[in-house]
């Protein structure tokens, strides 16, 4: 019998449900990819709607991944899988993942990275952070998004810049390192930046720690997100 007064472990419930949702969403996304492919090759005219579906499902997927990861971090069940990765290859993969959706909106994703560039980080986490920023830029960029990596003073500096109108002032004045905030007035959940700052902080090398930064201007005059990893 269900006892309505029994208190449930709501966060655990939420996490396991999110996990289940993610499985369904995964099937949905892969199937959608197949539909898009056959549809495009047949020259159907629902291309832009389908691409919007792809974009939105990716957004949901990114959010779910972030929620689950933050949950695990909160429960102290998360461990960084630090490895040495090829940054050039990682960027190529990001482009493969996002290019078709961005192209459908007339946005070009450009990468700048030394072919020999390698660095130490948690690949899934950093991919998550970059995908999330690129996904946001999709909404604001006009024609171009640049992802760039350079090595600077013992850090890898990965930045994502667009040619949109940039971040609203309210965003720029809050301390992104401490960002935990849900702001209902701006409609931002703050999840993406919070996740990014958590990921940055988890990356440490000896006495140095990763940081994030958001600014306007950047390479193309729009918003620019930067994550620096030691």
């Amino acid at each position: 019998m269900i006892n309505p007064t029994k208190t449930i472990d709501f966060p655990a419930f939420l996490a396991s449900t999110v996990h289940d949702m993610k499985n369904s969403l995964g099937m949905l996304m892969n199937t959608l990819d197949e539909v898009v492919e056959t549809c495009v090759s047949k020259g159907c005219d629902s291309g832009s709607q389908l691409s919007l579906m792809q974009y939105e499902s990716r957004r949901v997927n990114n959010n779910l991944i972030q929620l689950l990861t933050l949950y695990k971090m909160d429960m102290d069940q998360f461990s960084l899988q630090l490895g040495e990765y090829d940054v050039y290859e990682l960027f190529e993969e990001i482009i493969l993942q996002n290019d078709s959706v961005l192209k459908a909106r007339g946005i070009e994703l450009i990468m700048e990275c030394d072919e020999q560039q390698i660095w130490f980080f948690d690949r899934e986490l950093i991919t998550g952070v970059i995908n999330n920023v690129v996904n946001n830029a999709y909404r604001y960029a006009k024609e171009k998004i640049l992802i760039r990596a350079v090595e600077e003073d013992g850090f890898i500096v990965i930045s994502i810049a667009d040619d949109g109108n940039g971040y609203p002032d309210a965003f720029l004045t809050t301390d992104v390192q401490q960002s935990t905030g849900v702001s209902f007035s701006t409609g931002s959940t703050g999840l993406g930046l919070y996740f990014a700052s958590m990921v940055a902080v988890m990356h440490k090398n000896r006495d140095r720690t990763g940081t994030i930064e958001i600014a306007n201007g950047g390479e193309y005059g729009g918003g620019c997100f930067t994550i620096r990893l030691p």
Binding site: K22, L25, N30, E37, I65, T69, S79, Q97
Partner: peptide, 28 residues
């Protein structure tokens, strides 16, 4: 299905060549 490796991490000689997070697109 999720990027938390709590379940894996056995002995080094028994690690897979890669962990991939689902869903994964055809291209990737």
């Amino acid at each position: 299905a999720e990027n938390t490796m709590t379940m894996v991490m056995g002995a080094v000689e028994y690690q897979p060549d890669a962990y991939l997070l689902k869903p994964i697109s055809k291209e990737v």
